[in-house]
Nucleic acid binder design. Structure first.
Length: 130
DNA sequence: CTGATGACGAGCG
DNA sequence: CCGCTCGCCATCA
């Protein structure tokens, strides 16, 4: 079954849990070439034209600068999920960044694993909001 | 089929 | 810290 490139991008984005955010580059890296950073943005822009299909948490995808791309509306949606932004409109990817999909899921979809070994949960953003 | 368009990333000054 | 340039995929009219 040859799914469209955009579909694969959506599938990866659907793995992002609530309260976490992923960057365009991160999604592109998981999908793999020829998907570049731009393509992910294009795919999300195309979402506006897709009136049907499974939901895609597009608001959880932000740029590498830790800033939202679509405007204050997106930031508000994320804040409602527990993501914190500073006065500059930036969020700490160290705390709210998505570690990546689960190994099992990644393997089942032929996605490159985020890291060879599971990273130790040193911090739990949602429980360590201070 | 051709042309226009769209929500980024990294590098450099 | 900010702004500019280049790279380049799929979808729509």
């Amino acid at each position: 079954m040859e799914e469209g490139l955009y579909e694969r991008i959506y599938e990866v984005i659907r793995q992002i849990p609530r309260g976490r955010v992923a960057t365009y580059g991160q999604i592109a890296a998981l999908v793999g070439p020829p998907c570049g950073g731009r393509t992910v943005g294009y795919a999300l822009a195309a979402l506006g034209r897709r009136l049907d299909g499974p939901p895609v948490p597009w608001q959880r995808v932000i740029n590498a600068q830790g800033r939202v791309s679509t405007g204050p509306d997106q930031q508000r949606l994320l804040e409602a999920e527990g993501v914190v932004f500073d006065e500059s409109g930036r969020t700490d990817l160290k705390r709210f960044g998505w570690p990546g999909p689960e190994s099992a899921w990644a393997a089942a979809h032929g996605i490159g694993a985020p890291s060879p070994a599971e990273p130790s949960e040193a911090e739990s953003p949602q429980l360590r909001l201070f």
